[in-house]
Design a protein around this nucleic acid. Sequence first.
DNA 1: ATTCTAACTGAAAATGAGTTTCAGTTAGAC
DNA 2: GTCTAACTGAAACTCATTTTCAGTTAGAAT
Lengths: 152, 152
Amino acid sequence: MDQRVLQATAVLRRHGYKLTKPRRLLLEWFYRRGEHASAQEVFDSLCRQGQEIGLTSVYRNLEVLVKVGLVRQICFHDGCHRYEPVAPGEHHHHLICSDCGQIIKFHGCTFDRELAERLEQETGFMVNCHQLQVFGTCKFCQQESATKRRTV
Amino acid sequence: MDQRVLQATAVLRRHGYKLTKPRRLLLEWFYRRGEHASAQEVFDSLCRQGQEIGLTSVYRNLEVLVKVGLVRQICFHDGCHRYEPVAPGEHHHHLICSDCGQIIKFHGCTFDRELAERLEQETGFMVNCHQLQVFGTCKFCQQESATKRRTV
DNA sequence: ATTCTAACTGAAAATGAGTTTCAGTTAGAC
DNA sequence: GTCTAACTGAAACTCATTTTCAGTTAGAAT
């Protein structure tokens, strides 16, 4: 079994979860290809691979994987939640085109320990993680709307 | 009419939208009390006030208000979108308790023009806005889980 | 290795946020 | 005032996600 899957399995065990077939399939899927995919997309992809898994189990176990911190749930306001594997030491966020929904990953986040600590002191919260979404218009959609303005 | 509602009306007009009763009700509602409320919550609140408005119109016009930039749509992973008025010159984000869903507003965002410009250069996007969600555990839920650990 | 059982599974039904349809209404341009 | 494109609300619909339930399985206990 893939090293990452093995490590993830240990995390699951530590949280009292068994390693079942659907869980293994999800982990393998995410570590092989996973970038902000919806539950339905993961399910479809697995089915196309000929794997046997129920959609219910996909939803159920995505929830488990999020709970133990192996997967992150993100929202791009496009009608469904999306999921991606959490890679320790790796940290990125997303740039989303408000017009066409295109998503680009980017590195270089400005959220820092200083802000986290300030928040913890001011609110008593224990800060765990954060998500940053940057919205804008992609190159193509900018041209698109410029063209439209010219012809209308 | 409230100054802010008046200004908002001008924004709607500029975008080619009429000022209808549902739109006015939504604007008034948001400027009087609006903090990250769901469509259903806004609807219920307006109904309780004895206002006549359809849930469909709430959804439809929230979309319009988001489109013209008067309202922001946010996602706290709690099953529905939430909305809050955009106050020009004001800028905040949210700290969310992953356990109980409590939401705290905070100021002092570290996303800066520099990062935005870097993204624009690297991707060709035109950056418009951003959202930051910080997740953690609130004071109460920390105690809660500490207690549970002790008694179990 | 076998037994045991809580945790888990998938199919089907249910839920609920959000959207679409459609016949009637209205803001506001003329 | 007239006109009409934009708008409205109720009802029907869509579709992501959750719940239910009867059967299955991982893995701890023996």
